[in-house]
């Protein structure tokens, strides 16, 4: 038996060491750095919470955190609301032999380059873009849609609707049709069946998808940078700004730790329903 355990350890060790060296250790280094401060252009390691205090008292910093949470919350809710009916339509209305194709089509743009996807929305939403040209034909506009929070939310929603359609669909099809049959057999209307039976049963899948959306969305730099313009900053944009322009690594680290704390809070809030191993 002891030999078994030694062998098991030997097999797990490389992955553990890799994770320890290139994930845990870097995070520890970043955590240490977040308690340092800048003197001129030099980093002075110490142990003061100045960066954290500044993050929550300096309005320009705090605003970024608030923006990020607002945008992410909006995107998560809107994406789930849009994706659920789409997944349900594919799962229940599309004939079985076309379902794989329908699903493949629904997520195909998922595989465009991440950077290019935001850029494409710029072509659609810009002052001279497709949508404004359409409005012009009706004698309206042009409207400023790019470089707004609306554009950021739309760009994000586009991406996450695809992701969520996939996860929610997977959830819906593995649900036995007998649940719905039983509920209706016992006199529940379609709507009540949906509300009391189908929705609770698919909740873990929805929450898992929503959590992944939340994590990916709140940590993303590309979409708000391309589509949001510079009217307002999100937390990742602020982090990149601190690091790039000011070279203020300690402040960037502190903001990153805060970002991670927000994600951890979100995890705690929905841990009960999360099935990360079943993604």
């Amino acid at each position: 038996m002891r030999r078994e355990i030694r062998l098991g350890w030997g097999l797990v060790a490389p992955a553990l060491l890799w994770t320890a060296a290139f994930f845990v250790l870097p995070f520890a280094a970043m955590l240490a750095l977040s308690f340092a401060h800048m003197e001129g252009r030099a980093v002075v390691q110490g142990f003061d919470a100045g960066n954290y205090i500044r993050a929550f008292t300096d309005w320009s910093q705090l605003k970024a955190l608030i923006n990020s949470v607002e945008i992410t919350a909006t995107v998560t809710v809107v994406s789930v609301l849009l994706a659920w009916p789409l997944a349900a339509t594919i799962a229940w209305r599309v004939p079985a032999r076309w379902q794989r194709l329908a699903l493949l089509m629904a997520v195909l743009p998922f595989w465009t380059s991440y950077v290019v996807r935001s850029y494409s929305w710029l072509l659609v939403l810009g002052k001279t873009g497709v949508v404004n040209r359409g409005f012009a034909l009706l004698g309206l506009g042009p409207f400023e849609m790019a470089s707004t929070r609306f554009a950021t939310v739309l760009g994000f929603t586009h991406f996450f609707v695809m992701l969520l359609t996939l996860t929610i669909y997977a959830n819906l099809v593995q649900l036995s049709p007998n649940y719905a049959r039983a509920a209706q057999d016992l006199g529940a209307s379609r709507l009540r069946t949906l509300w009391h039976v189908i929705l609770p049963l698919t909740l873990p899948g929805i929450v898992t998808g929503a959590f992944v959306t939340f994590v990916l969305c709140i940590g993303d730099y590309v979409t708000p940078q391309i589509l949001g313009g510079n009217n307002e900053l999100t937390l990742p944009q602020l982090i990149m700004l601190q690091m790039g322009r000011g070279g203020n690594f300690p402040m960037a680290s502190a903001l990153s730790v805060i970002l991670m704390a927000v994600v951890t809070l979100a995890y705690g809030a929905c841990a009960k329903w999360l099935r990360l191993d079943r993604l």
């Binding site: 320890a20 970043m30 994590v215 960037a252 990360l276």
Partner: peptide, 23 residues
Amino acid sequence: MRGMLIAPMTVSYLIIGLGLLTF
């Protein structure tokens, strides 16, 4: 061990990148 191996999945790429850069 399973938790530790899965953990990076729940952390933003930005944080992983910044951590590695610092490190």
